[in-house]
Structures are given as C-alpha cells and as structure tokens.
C-alpha cells in the first residue's frame, strides 16, 4: 500500500490526517486517496509526507487534481524529484489550500493557521 493513514492532533489541538506516501502511485491508488478526502475525511486538514522515490503514473497525476476540492493540505518531502513532480501537477491549479514544505514542523504550523 503506498498510503498509510494516521489520525493525529496538531500542537494547537487541531485534528488532522497524516498520510505517509511511498512507492509507485497508479490510478487505483489515486482514486482511493481522493475518495478518502472527498468522503470520510472531507474538509479534514491533511499532512502528506511523501518519501523519496515516490512516483505517479500519468493517470494518477491527473486524478489527484481532484484533491483541489479537499481541505487544507500540506505536503512534506525532502526529495527534489518529488517536489518537482508535485509542482508540475499543481502548477495550473494555484490552490491556496495546498503547500509543499521541506520540514514537517513548518507544515504543521501552516496547517494550524488554516481555517477548517
């Protein structure tokens, strides 16, 4: 499974979903991911930690754009390749609810500032 979900609370007490992402993400994985955040986790704050070496198929990349309708979403990665992939995927979206960070604490601080 490329996704591992945890329900946690930020230092300021806001609940959020932390997702660890790794491996190859295909369309089925992307559909499952989007379904979670447009379904049971709708409007929940999301922190996705994407491991180095994570790759997305073309169809998965397109499907993940539907996450635009989900709640505030911070991604943490220290891989230039993953960051570039995410930048390319989200380039045309200009979504103020989504940001990429290199540091998890900074990401959590940003999430805490976002309205639900």
């Amino acid at each position: 499974m490329p996704f591992r979900y945890e329900e946690l609370v930020t230092p300021r007490g806001r609940p959020y979903v932390r997702v660890h992402v790794s491996g190859d993400i295909d369309i089925r994985d992307a559909e499952e991911y989007v379904a979670k955040f447009l379904g049971p986790y709708l409007r929940r704050h999301v922190l996705s930690v994407v491991a180095s070496g994570t790759e997305y198929t073309a169809r998965a990349r397109k499907h993940l754009l539907a996450m635009n309708d989900a709640g505030p979403h911070a991604t943490v990665t220290n891989s230039a390749l993953v960051r570039t992939a995410i930048n390319l995927m989200t380039r045309s979206q200009d979504n103020p609810n989504y940001r990429v960070f290199a540091d998890e604490l900074a990401a959590l601080a940003w999430l805490d500032e976002q309205e639900a």
Binding site: S52, R61, S79, A80, A85, L88
Partner: peptide
Amino acid sequence: ENEDALLDVEMGINY
C-alpha cells in the same frame, strides 16, 4: 535529485 529549475523542464518533458 537536482535542486534547480532545469529539473522542472526535464520532468515536464517526461510527463
């Protein structure tokens, strides 16, 4: 893993 703008172009071409 090059932290530069050319990586965007390289990956963009692959996409």
